[in-house]
């Protein structure tokens, strides 16, 4: 194997530095960090986007993406949330960070975002920490959407992995067009349950295919949900998804 090149390899874009202002443990294995740029500026992003954090592991630095769980309208710090993964060295490093530590990051990135809500009914689907990008998307949908229904199906393998429950309840009280349902099911059954509910609510219930969807989750379940909705007649570009 060989590489032939001249000069220095091109590098990436400029890096931002953020300080950990606060941390919040949702439960034993799920944490939020609240970050503020050290130069005092406000991070500008679209709901649904993520940042990339440089994580030193051994003698190299890896890039790992974390969705922003707060809304652009919130001044000061912005929030990322994540859960411990068996063997996940990157997230392990992140769990070791303390208030006052600095992180190097780039971003924001990502096309799974909502600048303005479409003026049609909106379906949101998330599981566990994948609620992170959906949370600001929901807020934007409520603030900029028509009065068309917005419904969130949010699942987890156990109750403590349902995050921001109070926020969701509050949003449902404030916005009469928003409703949500929580699905708790064993991990091996959860994705099937999400598909069943999506099918019943948005496919079997009527012939309306004007809805738009934002789906975020982990693994192939997201692709199966995408295929379910597109296969039922929803436009390709009406089904937004992000798979981690």
């Amino acid at each position: 194997m060989s590489v032939t090149a001249q000069g220095t390899a091109p590098r990436g874009r400029s890096t931002l530095t953020a300080r950990i202002e606060r941390l919040q443990d949702h439960c034993a294995d799920t944490r939020s960090l609240f970050l503020a740029l050290t130069d005092g500026r406000h991070l500008r992003f679209q709901p649904g986007q993520f940042i990339s954090i440089s994580i030193p592991l051994g003698d190299e630095t890896r890039t790992r993406a974390y969705s922003i769980a707060s809304s652009p309208e919130e001044r000061g710090s912005f929030e990322i949330c994540f859960n411990m993964i068996a063997g996940g060295r990157g997230v392990g490093w992140l769990f070791e960070r303390k208030v006052g530590d600095s992180l190097e990051l780039t971003g924001p990135f990502g096309t799974f975002s909502m600048e303005r809500a479409p003026q049609v009914e909106i379906g949101l689907i998330a599981e566990g920490t994948a609620i992170a990008p959906i949370r600001p998307v929901l807020r934007r949908a409520i603030e900029t959407g028509a009065d068309a229904p917005i419904h969130l199906i949010y699942g987890a393998d156990r109750d403590e992995h349902i995050l921001y429950r109070a926020d969701l309840d509050q949003a449902a009280k404030r916005a009469t067009n928003f409703s949500h349902e929580i699905v708790i099911a064993p991990a091996e059954q959860l994705h099937e349950r999400l598909r069943e509910i999506a099918n019943r609510r948005w496919i079997a219930a009527d012939a309306n295919r004007t809805r738009q969807f934002w789906i975020c989750g982990v693994g192939p379940a997201v692709i199966k949900l995408r295929d379910l909705l597109r296969g039922a007649g929803y436009e390709r570009r009406a089904v937004h998804y992000e798979q981690w």
């Binding site: 194997m1 590489v3 090149a5 390899a9 091109p10 590098r11 990436g12 874009r13 993520f50 990339s52 890896r62 890039t63 790992r64 993406a65 780039t106 971003g107 990135f109 990502g110 096309t111 799974f112 992000e242 798979q243 981690w244």
Partner: peptide, 28 residues
């Protein structure tokens, strides 16, 4: 990062930079 044998994998493995903000997970 990236699919094994992908352009990203080959470049990073040979110490040539290619942006991959999502970690090579097909999310950007």
């Amino acid at each position: 990062d990236g699919k094994p044998g992908s352009i990203l994998d080959v470049m990073l493995g040979h110490k040539l930079h290619l942006e991959h903000a999502c970690g090579g997970n097909c999310a950007c």
